[in-house]
Structures are given as structure tokens and as C-alpha cells.
Nucleic acid binder design. Structure first.
Length: 1174
RNA sequence: GCUCAGAUGGUGGAACUGGUAGACACGCAGGACUUAAAAUCCUGUUCCCGUUAAAGGAGUGCGGGUUCGAUUCCCGCUCUGAGUACCA
């Protein structure tokens, strides 16, 4: 029978599924090998031909490793939480779980028909509760951990608490928030639980903190840095803005150094590592404090400005300091004389969006504050400027400017006429800064004459001695925002009590995603989970209550002396800050309330217990609070706060900012009425002997609000490779034995788009899990390969766009308007489309005469083919075509109706209505019209390489190709296309060659009548040579992931064996094994035809290469003269170079080439070449 | 701007440690089979000059270097792609 790929492929796919042929063994004496593809998101669009590229490569590798005797783990699953399903749900109201399910089914069907050897018994889905239970569990471990810098690893938060209890905060070297408290052991123990928990939150590896986030209003969620590209969201391309929000974050910065170091130990593509290095952004330098020049009467909150620099050696070249406009000291540093200028500049920068700021990079702008710092090493006065080229978010938000060494500083200095002092004798600073490190220092006091290394060391030493600086390492990487204000993600296993986050009990995992009515934020702007009814935590908070969970106010004697004196002191500091920087609404209200305008003394930003009240009347016990509109999770905190304040004898009234802005007077009246109505404050509560629970009861029966945001897309994919090791375990995320056996991923294949997202977060979680001894390897992916992108190859037709203008109607020239592009396109629909072939398009571009031809042609065709009439027909009477508006537009045409750039005109006509009556000028100049019959010439389309996408009509679907050629052909063709890592355009043209090859292979096993027939004779030498060449070639190629070259070699081998008329069983059987990882279906079929047991091919031993079969006794030496090959000579390989030389020189043809001359030198490389120098 | 990767026929690409550049495949041209088409098979196919077959010459983005010999190594440049960006 001829090669029937359809039947064969279906048969074997079924067989593999039924027999679980590719199930990996949990326990095995074989060595393990773990081949993984990057977790796919099952999108609704289905696969295009570019998607399976990496899967085919990894599958070939996995199959090859099985043949080589490895126990191979090759799983597949779905990263099934994510934005697209949710966006779709918002539009259609369909539950994302349903659409996701449907998408997975499509995805699976498409994967199955390509014949992958996945172990489907281990399939995972991040959106399944069995799976996200463990994502939540890992989140809990992160919450319960801190990073101990001394041990350089994460540890349980218990060890931190123990340390605090025994030694206080002294001796702790941790990665934490910047502002942490300092306290003794006794002070710690004296703190209320709330204060303690608040403090611990600053150390936890996942924490809640008010931070500046990338807010995307269109998606209604925050995004991580890697999800933002050039100020727009990566998914959807919506604008992103900066916003302060209470957010869950992951303290990935704790691992910055280890993430960087680890890169040196893994076999990844260099560009990928480079991207991670850039993202981590380590820079070694020094921090230097520049004392602020004292000014009479002005009290500063700080008497120095700290800068970070990587070139501390240039400190003698500092001629000014630049701080970011957002720098906290700007207000204090601005002198009255400079205030207008500075304010104007700040307003100007605020107006600029991120994008403007980037685009504006070239223009110099800034403003002088009027203040000076002192250069600590030469005591010179250094003016302080603000400028937006200094970023508040990097380093300290301040730079020491060295115009001689830094181009931005140089431009700034030129612009503001600031001095430029050279500091190295080799510097050339006439036109631009020179950042050289060569030469000896000048103008640099005690380092004059030293070189770069010496000077740097000397300066750092000096600064350290002065206690004004030290060597420092800075990282660009920020902590990763972990919450998303979206529905379709893992719920965060956290509830809120006293405004503080608490973990739910492990017994209550998984915390299931609740059902909601609409997948939209609530009216009050809470995330979608705010819609879930009754979604509150009822259980016990944890098995062992958090340390120190006692009454918060057992020491409270008065509102000033709260439970925690240290904390209270800090609050007073914050209050002072707040008073200095009132918000707009606070300021409006304060102007009305101050100076007893209500009849009572009002204080603003006043610390009470652990809170700061916006406004308070101590006399009447009334607290006035201003709120932005807020989040449900803040409400829990607000309620707790109100309750506590009530307890201290205060009544709380709240206004929103909007209320104040709209009617300040009304707000004032309400407050006044309230004050008048209130009695004197009851102070009896301040005895402190009462046990107070701020939430009004014990946990039993109480409902605590859950966290309303969900986890980001990368949560589930940051550990999934461990789940595959033990996918069905319901006791642990994976068993210890499984992890110890499989350890890590040996080969990971996927796209480079995950470089700074998934691959960085995964390494982070892996290191964390290693620290907790949950896993055994420091790095999860030993070897990684980026498959290149498959680009689309678009085809174009060249459409004549024409417009019709009208003469003045009724003496009115209104109609003679300039026709806009849009109108022009509308008009071009009134007649038939006219398309010109590629040659004529080039003619149109380069030849004025042809334009005229087209114009005349068009006029004639139009008068012939259409009547210029419509409902108001007079409009078209006498209409004329405007030559100036005639244009030829390259227009995408569906690549599926084009073959070898030749358009299928019939298919074109039936594809779209507006092409039905099209007139085509063909390559040979003849014309194809709908009425004209007979044979037609060719219409040649234009070609361009672009992204593969529906809108460009260049999507090639693997389903179609499999239907035409089969999966084996598709697999081999995708590999044949070129090196795996390289991006390349898809062109279906070559696929025939691969198909022919498989048929030729099939035919080796069959006689002319297509009957299966092999011979049992002893193989010939030539046959064995062909076989062993390919055995070795495939081994070499697969090991170095050069799949394209082995496909070529297969073709060569089959061509050779066909020429040898080989149908030898021994040869063919080994060949089947060698080819089976590339084209598994056809090989399985032939394997059983050869009489082997079905299903045994996948685990057959790979044939052993025997070099003896390749040994030649002769070699056709290329004979070259001065490096140019002239001829070949067959010479026995047993001859030594000397004899070869003699043999070659004796040859008559060689003598002819030498033309009687004696060669100066003869180079003979045995088995390679003979070269003569004349 | 910086970093990285790359540039070989009409096309995808091969040449692995410096040793016959263009393997393999597509496309194209010619031929066989056929009434015809499809399929299949055979031959040719880097460019230039040229021929009866020849014989020459040039040639791996450009310019130089090292070498008996360079697509491969070194230096400088051009272009393309990717990443990143006032990162101090």
C-alpha cells in the first residue's frame, strides 16, 4: 500500500493514548531526564504553525532520550488563569472557567494530532483548585518567612520573632522595608500584637505595603514592571499610569544577588542571561553624603544629601548636585528667591507623562534651588539643582554631577553655565564629556597622579574615615507587585483583622474562587471579588495564634501614652510630616476649622493610640476623618480603627474628599452641629484595665473580610515544574521522593518573551523553596533553549485606488472638495476593484508613463463596467476621475489562496464580495475579468515578512497542513526550516520535499506494487556505511539541538539507500529507530510491519555506532595551488604525507597546472588536502 | 545611545576544531510518460566571460590583516533584527 499517513497517524495516536506509552516511571533504575516546554496559556485563537515549533523540538529530544535509555519526564499542562479569558467573560458574561475549558479542549486536540509523546497522566492546570491549593500554600510559606542576610537565606518568621523576644532588633541583618523600628527585647514584648504584626510585615517575603504601582485603568488592575512596555500594558496595549496603592508585593530584591550569581551556573542563551542581568541591574559604586551648607533660621530635617555614584573617583570634578524633582528635600532646600522657578519646574514635570519624558530625553531642563552642599573632600560649595533626568526611584534620587565625565551632566553644565573641571590628564572635554578611566588624576588633591584603581580605593577610604560615604552596591530591580484587581486568578489566602493581613488556616486550603454575578469591579471600585456574597473568613485564624496576641491597650493610660511608646513617638513624627504636607482637601477644611471658627479648638494630624486622626476636638471627643474613595479591605481597617477610637471616648465622622471639594461650607456646618450636640468627652475608658478587642469579639463566629485582589498570572507558573513530578499528590505539592529523583528540568524550551517575567520569578521561588528545604536544586532549569519566532509571510495584491470628483454642481463648487483618505476609500467601492500584478506595480513606482496608462485604462474600464449612478444620480453625471488621486495600494491578501506567490484568481473571486468582479492586470500584461473565460496568465503577488496574525491574512494553520501531508511531514518540515533558535518566516513551499522524502522512505520497505517486502540478506558495505553515517549524525545533531541538519542527513541517507536499492531488514530496522523521534507515526507502522511488537519502538535501544563501517581506504584529495582547488586525486589513505607529495608531483595533470614551475612548498594534511605554493 | 545576535545563490539553509563554499530542500528551466492535466521520474541550475565538449575569472555585507590556505580567527566600518534606556 502507498503511504497512507492519515490512517497510520490516527492509529498510532490512539494506541499511544490507550497504552499510556509515554507515562514516566516514578521509580526507576534508569537515569532521569526531564524535558519541559514553557507553560502555554490556552488562548481561544488556537495554534498557528509557529506555536508547535518548540514542542516538536522538545518531543524529538524526549523521544531520543528514551531510546538512549533514560526515564524521561515530558509533561504538558496549562497556565489557565489569565486576563484574556476574563476580558472575554466581561464581554459575554460567560464564566472564564467555561471558556478556558473549551480553549483547552481545542488546544489538546491540536496537540494530539501532532503526535507528541507527553505523559498526559500528569497534566496540570493552574486554575484547578487541586493545583492552586499549592500555589496558595507556597504563598503562605513566603508570608511566614523573612530573609536573613547573615545566613544568606530565607528563614521562618519564627526565628525572627524569637530574636526580637531575646535581643530586640539589635543584631538583625535582614532584607526589609526601609523604615523599621529599633527596639529592645522588653520593648518588643511590650508592644501590642497589632504593632508587632505591623512590624513583622516589614520583613515578610510577601507583604502588604503602600507602594507606587503601574495602574492600568482600562484593565482595572495593577501590572508588574515586566507587564508594562513603554508605558502601555503588554496585554492589550492600554495606557498605564503611576498610582499609590496598598498592594501585595514579593520581596524578590532579597534574592537579587543570588539571581545574578546563579546565571553563571546555568546553560542558557547569552542574550537571555543578559536581559536578566540588565533587569537585576547591579551596579557597584559608593554612596556619598554631601553636607548641606547651613543657612540661618532654616531647620532641616536632614543635614546632608546622599548620592549614589559608580565613579566615586571623579568626586573632585563635581561642580553641582542634581536631585529629582520628587526628592523629599526639594521644598526645604528651595530658597525664597528660587521658589517661583522651582515650583514652575515641578508643575512642568508633573504635566509630562512618562512617555513625554522619555521622548524629551535630549532637551536639557532643570532649576536651581538656591541652596548649596559642601563637597566633603575639598570643601567647595556645590549648587543644588533639580532636573527630571534624575529619577526619584533609582539610587537615592540624587546624583553628584561630574560634567567632565558624564555626558548628561556635561550638557546640563553647558546649559546652565556651570564649570566643567577635568580630573584626568587624558581627558578630552572640548565637545563632550569623556568618561575614560585611563590616565592620572589632576585637580584632585590627594589623589593627583594616581590611576583609577588607586584613586577609587583612596577616596572610598577617606570617605569612610570621614563617615561620609562607603562602598555600596545598588540594584535596579524592584520588589514585584503581586496583587491583581481581577477575578480570574488564585485567591490570596489572607483575611483582614485589625486592618492587618492574617493567613487563613492551612486546613482551609484551597481557598476557592467564589462565584460572582459580573466580572467587573464593584460600584465602589473594589476588585471583582468584592461582589462575592458572604465571602468572609469564618475559621480560626491559625493553629497557633500569632505571638503576643493580647489586648492592644492594656497599658493605655491616656491617649498620649498608648500601648507602645516607641510607636507613639514615631506617629508623632509622621503627624508632623503630614501637617507639613496637607492634601488639598485637608487644607481647605483646615482653613475653615482652625482658630476655633467652630467654637472649639480643633487639632489636625493628631496621634491617638496607634492612629493619626485627620482632625480632632479633644474637648468634645470628635474625630473628623477624610477619605478618598476606598477599597473594601481598607474598610475592615477603618472599622477597627473607629472601634478603637470609640473605645477611647471619641466619636468619628467621615467625609470623602469629594464632599469637601463640592461643599466645604456644608461639611463645616455638619461638623459644627455635631460638636455642639456632643457632651464633654468621657475619659473613663482610659483606665486601661479593660480587655479590649478592637473588632468586637473573638474569632468564633466572626467573619473577616478576605483579600479581594487575586494573584498575578506568574504565581501559578513559578513552581509548576515541581507539580509534574508528582501531579496527583493531595498531601503535598510534590513528595520528597519525587523531588529528590527528578530534581530539576534538564531541558527547557520556550520563547524569549518570558526572560524577565516567568523565568526570573521561577528562579526566585525556586531559591526560596530551596532555602526552606522544600526542593533540592538552587536553579530550576539547567539548560534552556529559546526557539525562534516563526514570522508570517504576507502576500499582497496591488489595488488601484481611485476617486471620483465632481464638477461644480449648480455653479456651486462645494463638491470640488479635496477628498480625504477615508472618503476616497469609500468611493473606490463604487466600481470594480482593479488589481495589478507585481511587475506592473514596480512599473507604476518607477515609470511616469505607466501611471498615465493606468489612468486611461481606469477611465475606460469604469465607463465600460459601471454606471456612475446612485439614488441621486445627477451627482455622478459628468463625474471625472482625478488623476492626482489615483494611487496603487498594496493590500494584504490571504496567503491560503496564493501558491508560490501566484494568486489563485478563482479563489480570490469567491473569497470576498468586493473581489467578485475584480479586473486583474496579469504579469504578462493580459487582463483577467469575471466575464473572460479560458486559460489565464499569472498574477504575481508581493511578499513581506511580518508578524503572523489574523489581521495580516498570513496565518497558516497546522490543521490544514496535517490534513494535506500528515503530522510526520509537518514535524520534520518545521525542523527542516532552519536552526531552532533562529527566527524565520514561514513558507509552506518546501513542505513537498519533506513529504516526498517520507514517501521515499516508505517505498524502501515496499516493492513496485506497494507490497511490503524486505530482504534478510547480509547488508552490503555501502548500506552499512549509509546507516552508520546517519546513526552518528543524528546523535551529534540531537545532542547539540541542530535538528535541521539531521533532517537533511536523513534525506541524504534515504537517497543513498534508494540508489543502492536497499531493502535489507537489518539496515531498515535500525533506520526506523533512528528516524522514530522525528517521524514517530510512520516508524511505528514500519516497526510493526517488520514484525516487532507494537509500542516497543519508543523504548528500543538506539543503534550503536560502529566507526569501522566508515573507514575508507582511499580519499579524493583536493589538489590546490596557492589555496585554489584545481582537481581531485584519489590517493590511498595508507600513504604518508611524504609519499603523497611524491605521488601528486608525479601526476601529469598536476604538472600541467604547475606549468613546469617547481612548487616552493607543498602542504599535505593527511586525509584533508594537498596545497602547493608556487 | 548602550548591550546582544546576525548578514552565504531566486528562496529556506549546509559547511562541526581554519582545509573541495553553496550539502539538503524549494523554486525555476529543459526532457520522459500522458490525448491532456495532475502525480511520478530524469537532467541542469552561484555569477561573469565563453564553448562542440572546453578553458578561464570573480565570489560568503564592505575595507584591511594573520595564514600555505579564511564563510570560520583579528581590526575597522555598513546594514538588519532583538532587548534596553535619562540607572548616576
Amino acid at each position: 500500500m502507498d503511504y497512507q499517513f492519515k490512517d497510520i497517524e490516527q492509529k498510532w495516536q490512539q494506541f499511544w493514548a490507550q497504552n499510556q506509552t509515554f507515562k514516566a516511571q516514578d521509580k526507576s533504575s534508569k537515569p532521569k531526564y526531564y524535558v519541559l516546554d514553557m507553560f502555554p496559556y490556552p488562548s481561544g485563537a488556537g495554534l498557528h504553525v509557529g506555536h508547535p515549533l518548540g514542542y516538536i523540538a522538545s518531543d524529538i529530544f524526549a523521544r531520543y532520550k528514551r531510546l538512549k535509555g533514560f526515564n524521561v519526564l515530558h509533561p504538558m499542562g496549562y497556565d489557565s488563569f489569565g486576563l484574556p479569558a476574563e476580558q472575554y467573560a466581561i464581554q459575554t458574561g460567560q464564566h472564564p472557567a467555561l471558556t478556558t475549558e473549551a480553549n483547552i479542549a481545542t488546544y489538546r486536540r491540536q496537540l494530539d494530532q501532532i503526535g507528541f509523546s507527553f505523559d498526559w497522566s500528569r497534566e496540570v492546570r493552574t486554575s484547578s483548585p487541586d493545583y492552586y491549593k499549592w500555589t496558595q500554600w507556597i504563598f503562605m510559606q513566603l508570608f511566614n518567612s523573612w530573609y536573613n542576610k547573615a545566613a544568606d537565606k530565607a528563614e521562618s518568621i519564627d526565628t525572627l520573632v524569637k530574636h526580637f523576644e531575646q535581643h530586640g532588633s539589635a543584631g538583625i541583618n535582614a532584607v526589609s522595608d526601609e523604615e523599621v523600628l529599633t527596639f529592645s527585647a522588653d520593648e518588643w514584648k511590650a508592644k501590642s500584637n497589632i504593632v508587632q504584626q505591623n512590624e513583622l510585615l516589614k520583613y515578610r517575603l510577601t507583604y502588604l505595603r503602600e507602594s507606587t504601582v503601574n495602574w492600568c485603568p482600562a484593565l482595572g488592575t495593577v501590572l508588574a514592571n515586566d507587564e508594562v512596555k513603554d508605558g502601555f500594558s503588554e496585554r492589550g496595549g492600554y495606557p498605564v499610569e503611576q498610582k499609590k496603592m496598598m498592594q501585595w508585593s514579593m520581596r524578590i530584591t532579597a534574592y537579587a544577588e543570588r539571581l545574578l550569581q546563579g546565571l553563571d551556573k546555568i546553560d542558557w542563551p547569552e542574550p537571555l542571561k543578559e536581559m536578566q542581568r540588565n533587569w537585576i541591574g547591579k551596579s557597584t559604586g559608593a554612596s556619598v553624603k554631601f553636607p548641606i551648607e547651613s543657612q540661618e533660621s532654616k531647620v532641616k530635617s536632614q543635614d546632608y544629601i546622599e548620592v549614589f555614584t559608580t565613579r566615586v573617583d571623579t568626586i573632585f570634578g563635581v561642580t553641582f548636585l542634581v536631585i529629582a524633582p520628587e526628592h523629599e528635600l526639594v521644598a526645604e532646600l528651595t530658597t525664597p528667591a528660587q521658589k517661583t522657578e522651582i515650583d514652575a519646574y515641578i508643575v512642568q514635570t508633573k504635566k509630562k507623562s512618562e512617555l513625554d519624558r522619555m521622548a524629551d530625553a535630549k532637551t536639557v531642563s532643570g532649576a536651581f534651588t538656591g541652596s548649596y552642599v559642601i563637597n566633603p573632600l575639598n570643601n567647595e560649595r556645590v549648587p543644588i539643582y533639580i532636573a527630571d533626568y534624575v529619577l526619584a526611584g533609582y539610587g537615592t534620587g540624587a546624583v553628584m554631577a561630574v560634567p567632565s565625565g558624564d555626558q548628561r551632566d556635561f550638557l546640563f553644565a553647558k546649559h546652565f553655565n556651570l564649570p566643567i573641571v577635568p580630573i584626568l590628564d587624558t581627558q578630552n572635554i572640548v565637545d563632550e564629556a569623556d568618561s575614560t578611566k585611563e590616565g592620572k588624576y589632576i585637580n584632585s588633591a590627594f589623589v593627583n597622579g594616581l590611576d583609577y584603581k588607586e584613586a577609587t580605593a583612596a577616596i572610598v577610604a577617606k570617605l569612610e574615615e570621614l563617615k561620609l560615604g562607603k562602598a555600596k552596591i545598588n540594584f535596579r530591580m524592584r520588589d514585584a507587585i503581586f496583587g491583581r484587581q481581577r477575578y480570574w486568578g488564585e485567591p490570596v489566602p489572607v483575611y483582614f483583622k485589625d486592618g492587618l493581613p492574617h493567613l487563613i488556616s492551612e486546613d482551609h486550603l484551597p481557598l476557592l474562587l467564589p462565584e460572582i454575578d459580573k466580572y467587573l469591579p464593584t460600584e465602589s471600585g473594589e476588585p471583582p471579588l468584592g461582589r462575592a456574597e458572604g465571602w468572609v473568613y469564618q475559621g480560626a485564624p491559625s493553629k497557633s495564634p500569632p505571638v503576643g496576641e493580647t489586648s492592644l491597650s492594656h497599658e493605655a493610660g491616656s491617649y498620649r501614652e498608648t500601648a507602645d511608646p516607641v510607636y507613639y513617638e514615631q506617629l508623632k513624627d509622621f503627624s508632623r510630616d503630614n501637617r507639613n504636607q496637607p492634601t488639598q482637601t485637608e487644607d481647605i477644611l483646615w482653613q475653615l476649622l482652625r482658630k476655633e471658627q467652630t467654637g472649639y479648638k480643633i487639632r489636625r494630624q493628631h496621634a491617638i493610640d496607634q492612629y493619626i486622626a485627620d482632625f480632632v476636638s479633644l474637648e468634645k471627643g470628635l474625630i473628623i476623618e477624610l477619605d478618598g474613595h476606598h477599597h473594601k479591605l481598607n474598610k475592615e481597617a477603618d472599622d477597627a480603627r473607629t472601634e478603637t477610637l470609640n473605645h477611647f471616648g471619641f466619636e468619628v465622622i467621615r467625609f470623602t474628599n469629594d464632599e469637601v471639594l463640592q461643599s466645604p461650607q456644608g461639611v463645616f456646618e455638619t461638623i459644627k452641629e455635631k460638636l455642639d450636640a456632643l457632651p464633654e468627652r468621657d475619659k473613663t475608658h482610659f483606665t486601661g484595665d479593660q480587655k479590649v478587642s478592637p473588632t468586637g469579639g473573638d474569632l468564633e463566629g466572626a467573619g473577616y473580610a478576605y483579600e479581594l485582589s487575586t494573584m498575578p498570572g506568574w504565581a501559578g507558573s513559578s513552581w509548576y515544574w515541581y507539580r509534574y513530578m508528582d501531579a496527583n499528590n493531595d498531601k503535598e505539592f510534590a513528595s520528597k521522593e519525587a523531588i529528590e529523583y527528578w530534581k530539576d528540568v534538564d531541558l527547557y524550551i520556550g520563547g524569549s518573551e518570558h526572560a524577565t517575567g516567568h523565568l526570573l520569578y521561577s528562579r526566585f521561588w525556586n531559591k526560596f523553596m530551596k532555602d526552606l528545604n522544600l526542593v533540592v536544586e538552587e536553579e530550576p532549569f539547567k539548560k534552556l533553549i529559546n526557539q525562534g519566532m516563526i514570522q508570517g509571510r504576507s502576500n499582497f495584491v496591488y489595488k488601484i485606488g481611485y476617486a471620483i470628483s465632481y464638477p461644480p454642481v449648480y455653479g456651486n463648487d462645494v463638491e470640488d472638495e479635496i477628498i480625504s483618505e477615508k472618503r476616497y476609500n469609500e468611493l473606490d467601492k463604487i466600481g470594480p476593484q482593479i488589481l495589478i500584478s507585481k511587475k506592473w506595480y514596480n512599473e507604476y513606482l518607477n515609470n511616469e508613463g505607466y501611471k498615465e496608462f493606468l489612468y486611461n485604462f481606469l477611465k475606460e474600464e469604469l465607463s465600460k463596467n459601471i454606471q456612475l449612478k446612485s439614488s441621486n444620480s445627477s451627482m455622478y453625471d459628468g463625474a471625472f476621475i482625478d488623476e492626482n488621486i489615483l494611487k496603487v495600494l498594496p493590500t494584504h491578501v490571504d496567503v491560503n489562496i496564493v501558491e508560490n506567490d501566484i494568486l489563485d484568481i478563482k479563489k480570490l473571486r469567491s473569497s470576498r464580495k468586493d473581489y467578485q468582479n475584480a479586473i486583474l492586470i496579469l504579469e504578462d500584461g493580459s487582463i483577467s475579468s469575471p466575464t473572460g473565460g479560458g486559460r489565464e496568465g499569472a498574477y504575481i503577488c508581493g511578499v513581506e515578512v511580518e508578524k503572523m496574525s489574523k489581521s495580516k491574512f498570513n496565518v497558516v494553520n497546522p490543521d490544514d497542513l496535517i490534513a494535506r501531508y500528515g503530522a510526520d511531514t509537518l514535524r520534520m518540515y518545521e525542523m527542516f526550516l532552519g536552526p531552532l533558535e533562529q527566527s524565520k518566516p514561514w513558507n509552506t513551499n518546501g513542505i513537498e520535499g519533506v513529504f516526498k522524502f517520507l514517501r521515499k522512505f516508505w517505498r524502501l520497505f515496499h516493492n513496485d506494487a506497494w507490497e511490503f517486502k524486505v530482504s534478510d540478506a547480509e547488508p552490503t558495505k555501502a548500506e552499512l556505511k549509509s546507516l552508520h553515517k546517519i546513526i552518528r549524525k543524528v546523535e551529534e545533531d540531537v545532542e547539540r539541538f541542530s535538528f535541521n541538519t539531521s533532517v537533511s542527513s536523513f534525506m541524504i541517507a534515504i537517497n543513498e539507500l534508494t540508489d543502492l536499492k536497499c531493502n535489507n531488514r537489518q539496515i531498515l530496522q535500525d533506520l526506523v529507530i533512528v528516524l522514530s523521534s522525528y517521524a514517530p507515526h510512520i516508524c511505528e507502522e514500519l516497526w510493526t510491519l517488520l514484525g516487532n511488537e507494537a509500542g516497543t519502538l519508543s523504548y528500543a535501544p538506539y543503534p550503536k555506532f560502529n566507526p569501522a563501517f566508515l573507514v575508507e581506504d582511499e580519499f579524493a584529495y583536493p589538489i590546490s595551488i596557492n589555496g585554489k582547488t584545481k582537481m581531485n586525486l584519489n590517493i590511498s589513505l595508507s600513504l604518508e604525507p611524504k609519499d603523497i607529495e611524491a605521488y601528486v608531483l608525479a601526476n601529469a595533470d598536476v604538472q600541467r597546472y604547475l606549468d613546469g614551475k617547481q612548487p616552493k612548498k607543498v602542504i599535505v594534511v593527511k586525509g584533508r588536502i594537498v596545497n602547493m605554493v608556487v
